[in-house]
Design a protein around this nucleic acid. Structure first.
Lengths: 249, 249
DNA sequence: ATGGTATTTGCGGTTTTCTGCAATTTTTTT
DNA sequence: AAAAAAATTGCAGAAAACCGCAAATACCAT
């Protein structure tokens, strides 16, 4: 294993678990403790991670020194992302919205996976480009500055021409009565089309957005196939949704 | 086995496995270690792969554009970028290609400037999004993984519908005889359209690419309005171009 | 075809980098 | 406070990179 490969491997592990143990890395990469230590030292020197006794931590946690709120929601999104990537199979065409949860998912993709992603989100696109085996199709159009995605008439008409296997939506509000709701009219239109363009629809959200709603409806619950949160699937909060026929992960 | 063949072989292996070992290549291609090393060096210099101890890795491993060797060219690109932004006026519609020089320009934009950018480049788009007053329109389509821009039929037909005030092109080769040339067929088509879609065309390149050429022509010199390099405008190397009627900055 | 030019290639010797080992120091844990 | 785990340091063998040179090869114009 080459030095740079090891570095990439370490960073990947770090993106996945937010922490690595030197011991673990030794056995995983089949090198001596010293080599691992030196790798960690190099990466730490380059500001890519934080070295601690016995291993290293991901930067994303220390970037904002003391914001426990961010800390937990990020951690939760990571959990969601890890559940989500398991749904993706080789050769699939996957349509995705924007949002931090989606970006997190892009970072969790196993490197061998061969998938074609279709998205109008620039931050997500940037992540997909890092992946060695992912193909990428961009939905063009005028960018909404606040959500960093394309969502104008052109983008919507493009989505209409697509038939994807899977659609991942990061959502902002969901409840039994109103289904999925949003506060941005353009985003709503876009997501509606995305749902229509995909065989299966997967919604991802942190649990605090469960049982909330916003002005505009994106879709009814019955159009959703899978709902992913950071909670355990048999958590009480999720019962109403699984009762409504959604496969809860 | 000829040099070009070997290069092609190496790139092929790299696309397949994302990594190659010098030793392996020696035996596969039946040449000495030095030759392999020189091949790797050439390809690395051309930005086609990342050379590491013991072999090379596919570009998808690279996360850091500022890695050692590219330091100087980065400095030059900053100089170019600063000259370029001076050409942009409030209210303009600006079409841009991809490439590191363009990204550098995006970083140099004065914050008060109100401009609409139109691009198919994801890295450039990400930068434009950081700008407080820039609007952004994305040209959609399938992404070329190596250049990280959209350049398929769809993207080209979109560009054809545009009338921009200014077009910034990061170029890979320019000389008096062949004009602007490229080595990627799709990129060539895209840039051709971009030139046609703009009132004024600005080309940017580091001086080491002056007086070089590549397989496919993007445009004749006369279609270019402005040429920007890191050199002083009255440098001798630039004289042929200003003589050809180009405004040299 | 041919001869000259320029490029490319392989080799020997040297320098640099990488990696694992052992001894020592620091940190953590009990 | 002592024991255990991890970090640091120096070192040495091996592998790889680098440099200059001479031979071989490809290229070009005649």
């Amino acid at each position: 294993m080459l030095k740079k490969e090891r570095h990439a491997f370490i960073m990947h592990q770090l993106n996945l678990h937010n922490k690595v143990l030197s011991n673990n890395l030794c056995t995983d990469m089949q090198v001596s403790e010293d080599t691992v230590r030196r790798d960690l030292h190099d990466l730490s020197f380059g500001g890519k991670l934080i070295k601690v006794h016995g291993g290293a931590l991901s930067l994303s946690f220390s970037e904002v020194p003391f914001s426990s709120e961010k800390f937990y929601s990020h951690k939760n999104k990571k959990v969601i992302a890890e559940k989500a990537v398991k749904l993706i199979r080789n050769g699939m065409f996957v349509l995705t919205s924007g949002g931090t949860t989606i970006v997190e998912m892009a970072r969790c993709l196993p490197p061998q996976l061969k998938v074609t992603f279709i998205t109008g989100s620039i931050p997500a696109a940037k992540e997909y480009l890092m992946h060695p085996n992912a193909e990428l199709i961009i939905i063009g159009g005028k960018i909404l500055k606040d959500s960093k995605i394309t969502a104008d008439a052109e983008a919507i008409s493009k989505v209409r021409q697509i038939n994807a296997d899977l659609c991942f939506l990061g959502i902002n509000a969901i409840d039994i009565a109103h289904g999925i709701t949003e506060n941005d009219w353009n985003v709503v239109q876009m997501k509606k089309e995305m749902i229509g363009a995909s065989t299966k629809v997967v919604c991802m959200t942190i649990s605090e957005k469960l049982d909330t709603f916003q002005p505009f409806q994106v879709s009814e619950l019955k159009q959703i196939d899978v709902l992913i949160t950071e909670l355990n699937p048999d958590d009480n909060k999720l019962k109403p949704y699984s009762d409504a026929g959604i496969y809860v992960l």
